[in-house]
Write a protein that binds this DNA or RNA. Structure first.
Length: 513
RNA sequence: GUCCUGUUAGUGUAGUGGCCUAACACGUUUGGUUUUCAUCCAAAAGAUCAUGGGUUCAAAUCCCAUACAGGAUACCA
């Protein structure tokens, strides 16, 4: 019997959600939809020291903006496995029993070492040039734990409330194998693993324990996460085994990392600041979990990117469709997505292609959608155009821009007086015939009906003939007269849109220069 | 240091032993269209498939080694 596909996105609320995290969420979402399964948001807030106010909300907002909404989880309605916040699950005592189960079955033990003692041990091993400095089958014999201490002593420590952690007892010299959907078989000898802490002295489970317990309880079938988790995957396999859950262990897929555009290394906030592109979906202002300083970061939303363009760009970082079409609708993404086509190597992020994607999506928008997107900015400028007029303007500007936020610079002349003339063009084209021509054109336009693109173009050409000038001589001047700029959308479309009166005023102004 | 993972034009990727004289997209350059700009159309440049060895009649593709890169090595996730 095959289980219903269930996947989860499980971020830590330690700051704004990185675009790499958004991609992980995207792949999870796509995989769930493709397989008619469930997509869950679980908040892994087991580290109280790094909790950042507002981060959880940011994650939820970001997923909403991107259109990759979980069907259950924090911020998206509780499902049958609530709560979905690990701190709350800990309150319900969900994790402790499993730590106990592992102790009872001999796969875990209590350890009482202080952080100073651990530090000393590591320094000593390092000085001795030992192969490894980890808490493992060899070193645990010299530490303070329930394997070395007498039963009475352990009992006394526990009862007197001495701080302790629970560590997994990694077996010696055993091969741990796991099959990764993207990378194939990964085999590690257990001697390379260490006795990871499962349960912290503050009463919280660590990521490793909480993650396995929750994935099991929430009936997760596929774990799709970043490559940085690959080294600890064998530990997770062991936990499933010792907890007796190996038959329902999820399949793993470790995604390649997102790399900086230049040089090497993981894509970081610093790269974005340095190279001038956002690394986060939304603007962020908050405390940095590491430094404790206030920090701000810019986001794709505020930079003017469309969420579907942003998602499409992210999709192609580490995955590629079998066909050649790279601009995909959400339905097509779902239809075509497969983990088998995810690449193994890290993907260098290319800000240029991101812009291109936005341009593609801008082209695909209807004038009405663009008008709605632009209206807030016009409102702020105190401009309230008629809906039909605004749509027509958007339709013309659509072919010229990559972003809606370029519209104003490209087409302010549709709403307000020309800010500045392109003097280069005037210098080059203005001659002794120009003034007479513009006066004649203004006069000819006066009786032009209808004042549409085709008719005004005809009148324009007739006027050229009558005045004995070549269209090429005056066309650019005409554009400057109407828009101030040397380039732009189709000129007679602009003429018609501006209307007889405005055109007349601008021609007059030009003629009087 | 140790372990794990990776390496195809500037970038993202295609490629699963012969169809590879290595394809597509972004970017770059050139030409055409739009009298302009953007678009669109066409074309060009750009890759010793990291390096070395091996297996094979045949290798980007399989194996080994090396180099380089990244990740992990916390009572962080």
């Amino acid at each position: 019997m095959s289980r219903r596909t269930r996947v989860r996105f499980a971020p830590s609320p330690t700051g704004p959600l990185h675009m790499g995290g958004v991609r992980t969420a995207l792949y999870n979402y796509l995989f769930a939809k493709k397989n008619n399964g469930d997509f869950i948001l679980r908040i892994e807030d087991t580290d109280q020291g790094r909790f950042v106010q507002g981060a959880e909300n940011y994650i939820i907002e970001a997923l909403k903006w991107c259109g990759i909404e979980p069907g259950e989880g924090v911020g998206f309605g509780d499902g049958p496995h609530a709560p979905y916040r690990q701190s709350e699950r800990k309150e319900k005592g969900i994790y402790k029993q499993y730590a106990q189960q592992l102790i009872d079955s001999g796969h875990a033990y209590y350890a009482f070492d202080t952080s100073e003692e651990l530090d000393t041990m590591r320094k000593r091993l390092e000085a001795a040039k030992a192969k490894s400095t980890s808490y493992n089958a060899i070193t645990r014999q010299e530490m303070k734990n329930s394997l070395t201490l007498s039963e009475d002593e352990v009992k006394r420590k526990l009862e007197s409330g001495d701080p302790y952690v629970v560590r997994i007892k990694i077996p010696r010299n055993e091969e741990v194998r796991l099959k990764d959907i993207i990378r194939g078989w990964v085999v590690v000898n257990s001697n390379e693993l260490d006795d990871k802490v499962l349960y912290k002295s503050d009463g919280m489970p660590t990521y490793h324990l909480a993650n396995i317990v929750d994935d099991y309880l929430m009936q997760i079938t596929h774990v799709i996460r970043g490559e940085e988790w690959l080294p600890s995957a064998p530990l997770h396999v062991l936990l499933y085994r010792y907890l007796g859950w190996e038959s329902v262990m999820p399949e793993f897929a470790h995604l390649p990392l997102l790399l900086k555009p230049d040089g090497n290394g993981k894509l970081s906030k610093r790269d974005g600041d340095r190279l001038g592109f956002p690394v986060f979906p939304l603007d962020w202002k908050g405390v940095n979990a590491e430094t404790g300083q206030m920090e701000t970061s810019s986001g794709y939303r505020e930079k003017g990117y469309f969420p579907d363009a942003f998602i499409n760009m992210l999709l192609l970082l580490g995955w590629h469709p079998s066909g050649n079409d790279e601009v995909l609708t959400m339905a097509e993404m779902i239809e075509q997505f497969s983990l088998e086509r995810v690449s193994k190597s890290g993907a260098k992020f290319d800000p240029e292609k991101t812009k291109w994607f936005n341009q593609q999506y801008l082209r695909k928008r209807t004038p009405l959608e663009l008008a709605d997107a632009w209206r807030p900015e016009l409102d702020i400028r105190g401009i309230k155009p008629a809906p039909a007029y605004l749509e027509s303007v958007c339709k013309l500007l659509q072919e010229k821009a990559q972003f809606v936020n370029e519209f104003w610079n490209l087409g302010s002349y549709f709403f307000v007086d020309i800010v500045a003339y392109d003097e280069e063009v005037i210098k080059k084209r203005w001659n002794d015939k120009s003034k007479a021509f513009f006066n004649a054109l203004a006069a000819a336009y006066e009786g032009t009906e209808p004042f549409d693109a085709a008719t005004t173009e005809n009148i324009f050409k007739q006027t050229c003939e009558v005045m004995g000038v070549k269209t090429g001589e005056v066309m650019q001047l005409y554009r400057v007269a109407l828009t101030g700029a040397a380039g732009g959308p189709a000129l007679f479309e602009i003429t018609a849109l501006l209307g007889k009166q405005t055109v007349a005023e601008r021609l007059k102004k030009m003629a009087e220069r």
